[in-house]
Write a protein that binds this DNA or RNA. Structure first.
Length: 682
DNA sequence: AGCACGCCGACT
DNA sequence: GTCGGCGTGCTC
């Protein structure tokens, strides 16, 4: 067959694993000028009339002319020089080149690491098209490129130099991070700061903004990635004070599609920008990327809930390698994952100059003179401190979220069930166990209610509402403010108030809390998960960082290494100990893991090839709900690429093969599912 | 997904 | 001899 002219290599936007490679199409003459890498295209697929959406990845010469360079990092050696007859490109959707080469390379690599589809990553990276927004952007670009681009690539409005750049950190640490492309793990200064505009934010947010402004001054872009919108608001407030407003793009799945697309398109401009957003911001296009800064990488919101479930931390690590930019993980605590990278020497460590930290007092439960305080499960020392502080300003009580470890209550009067010897809360160690005291361990074999003499227990989850009631009685006359998922309060004045908040929902008071009580520690730790310790320490440190200078932070009813790590403000000692344990057990993140779920036959077929992967072992398979079984494979990081490649091949084989037997019309045949690095796995 | 290709039972 | 069943595989 004779072929001349140009060939478009196209990624089909489809969730089907069989289609996750590049397809070659002939570029018709009339599309030659529009068909450039990154544009959205429509292409015929199989039979005429069917068209699929896709992205033009690259333009190459026809195979018999010079192949213009192999596609970087693709897994489609088969189609690199497709020999069949080529169909023509159907159309180019618009001239906006929305998928940049850097984002494509990132999506391909991130998907390959997780045995997933590149198009699933691209869906996170490129928001849905909004025709009006795109037309406006194209029109504006047409008028500005003629003038502005010719003038200078640097921002026209010079940002004011930072007044006290990185005042909290040693000279030569963060100020040179962008220029020297450093990879760092940064301990955040656990304090609040008041901005000129009147907002109070965590100092960490200001540090993030300072880093981005430093990059901007060097003519380079930044990605600032934070878990939720409350964190975004804090960084945004700091950026408002430090950076020109038109150099900041906020990328947030919460905003309306039009706003989201507008912010995305702004990132495509050939000028340095600051991109602020949640986990998907790690995939934002950026001109000359100089910095990726990720706040609080242990927050579960950094984990992507959509297949292939790639954590923002992992995507950031891949992107840093491709862009050769600075990469900083900032937090009040250190995750085990980051600790591993520190011990490998991959990340350097930076701490604030001064070792200032909140005064955390582990407080054991003891007999309380006040009846109501006892009912509200507050020890006397903590109750006293809170009562004194409440004279002068806001006091925070952090409680477990409803639905955490369930509590036991009296079936007749609905009041929380208390241990008859120590007044501690009763709980169930396991579903089948006898109720016992969470504090002293005494079995509540012949329990009776102290309020109504009832003898029957029921399981309840105690929300902020009930806690507020109890605490209100313990602190009569106090103004009570509830902050949880349903009642969101962001900012708070300096007036006295008793704030009852679930973790993560604490409002930020101007000047900080004068006392903080961390309650329900046992309930948080009662959860069965590998990560309860890490999660709880992270939550406690983040909350303690809201304390006013010199304020007491009381950790109630929790001792041991967690309390020591908090009290000495050395959370990395906990991370190091935890990592040592995981190495011993061969648990992640000492090794990587993947779960393989499907019918017994499908799972067995997927596992056969894996036995030649170096260092890999298989746990299970075990039953995972009637027709399904689940196996877990563990493998060293060095074997990750091979494991992912083999499992992806198994997924493709399975997808091509699976057919629903016609006897059962509504029961779709279960697909083989593979999930890498699931944090909830063990 | 959708649609074509292909290899075995009852029909003009 | 052929029409069509749906199991199998491919889509540039």
């Amino acid at each position: 067959m004779t072929r001349t002219g140009l060939v478009a290599r196209v990624l089909i936007d489809s969730p089907l694993p069989q289609l996750d490679h590049l397809f070659d199409y002939r570029i018709p003459e009339e599309l030659a000028t529009l068909a450039v890498p990154g544009v959205r295209v429509r292409v015929p697929l199989r039979s005429a009339g069917r068209v699929a959406d896709g992205y033009l990845i690259e333009v190459v010469g026809a195979p018999d002319s010079a192949p213009a360079g192999a596609a970087a990092g693709t897994l489609d050696g088969l189609t690199a020089d497709y020999q069949g007859a080529l169909s023509p490109l159907d159309s180019v959707v618009s001239e906006a080149a929305v998928l940049t080469p850097a984002v494509w390379a990132l999506a391909r690599r991130v998907a390959d690491r997780a045995a997933g589809n590149a198009s699933d990553i691209i869906r996170l990276a490129v928001p849905p098209r909004q025709v009006r927004v795109e037309k406006a952007w194209l029109a504006a670009r047409a008028t500005t490129t003629a003038t502005a681009a010719a003038v200078a690539p640097s921002p026209d409005a010079d940002p004011a130099p930072l007044a006290f750049p990185f005042a909290d950190y040693p000279a030569g640490s963060l100020d040179t991070a962008v220029a020297e492309r450093k990879r760092l793990c940064v301990a955040a200064e656990p304090a609040l700061m008041l901005l000129p505009g009147g907002d109070t934010i965590g100092r960490w947010a200001h540090t993030m903004a300072e880093l981005a402004v430093t990059a901007l001054a060097e003519g380079r872009s930044s990605l600032l990635i934070v878990p939720d919108y409350r964190d975004q608001d804090q960084v945004q407030a700091a950026l408002d004070a430090l950076a020109p407003a038109d150099s900041v793009s906020r990328v947030d799945a919460r905003q309306p599609n039009a706003d989201r697309y507008r912010a995305f398109l702004a990132c495509l401009a050939p000028a340095p920008r600051i991109v602020l957003g949640n986990r998907s911001a790690v995939y934002a296009p950026a001109h000359d990327l100089g910095l990726i800064a990720l706040w609080d990488d242990g927050d579960p919101l950094h984990g992507e809930p959509l297949s292939p479930y790639v954590h923002a931390r992992d995507a950031a690590l891949v992107r840093q390698g491709q862009a050769d930019c600075a990469l900083l993980f900032l937090g009040h605590t250190r995750t085990v994952e980051v600790q591993r990278l520190v011990e490998l020497g991959w990340l350097g460590e930076v701490r604030p100059t001064r070792n200032r930290h909140p005064r955390v007092i582990p407080t054991d439960f003891q007999a309380t003179p006040d009846q109501q305080a006892r009912a509200a499960r507050i020890p006397s020392a903590a109750w006293q401190a809170a009562r004194d502080a409440l004279q002068h300003g806001p006091v925070l009580v952090q409680v477990a979220s409803p639905g955490y470890a369930p509590m036991l209550a009296c079936q007749s009067c609905k009041k929380a069930a208390r241990c008859t010897t120590c007044q501690g809360p009763l709980g169930l160690a396991s579903a089948a166990a006898l109720p016992s005291c969470r504090w002293c361990g005494a079995l509540a074999a012949d329990w009776s209610c102290t309020h109504c003499e009832g003898t029957k227990l029921r399981v309840v989850t105690l929300g902020t509402g009930r806690t507020a009631e109890e605490l209100g009685r313990a602190f009569p006359g106090a103004r009570v403010i509830i902050a949880d998922g349903d009642h969101q309060v962001q900012q708070l004045g300096a007036a006295p108030a008793l704030v009852i908040a679930t973790r993560g929902a604490e409002p930020i008071p101007a000047g900080g809390y004068l006392a903080i009580l961390l309650l329900d520690g046992e309930r948080m730790l009662a959860r069965e998960s590998l990560r309860v310790g890490d999660d709880s320490l992270r939550a406690w440190c983040n909350t303690a960082a809201l304390a006013a200078p010199g304020a007491s932070v009381m950790l109630v009813g929790v001792g041991g290494t967690l309390a020591r790590a908090l009290n000495s403000w050395q959370p990395e000692t906990h991370a190091a100990a935890e990592l040592a344990d995981r190495r011993q057990l061969r648990f992640p993140p000492a090794v990587r893991v993947a779960s393989v779920t499907g019918t017994a036959d499908d799972v067995a077929a997927a596992l056969v090839d894996l036995d030649r992967v170096a260092g890999l072992d298989v746990l299970g398979p075990v039953d995972a709900g009637d027709p399904l079984v689940r196996a877990i494979v563990r493998f060293p990081y060095a074997s990750g690429d091979e494991t992912a490649r083999l499992l992806k091949a198994a997924i493709v084989r399975n997808a091509a093969r699976r057919r629903r037997p016609k006897g059962a019309p509504f029961r779709a045949a279960p697909t083989l599912k593979v999930r890498f690095d699931d944090p909830e796995l063990l």
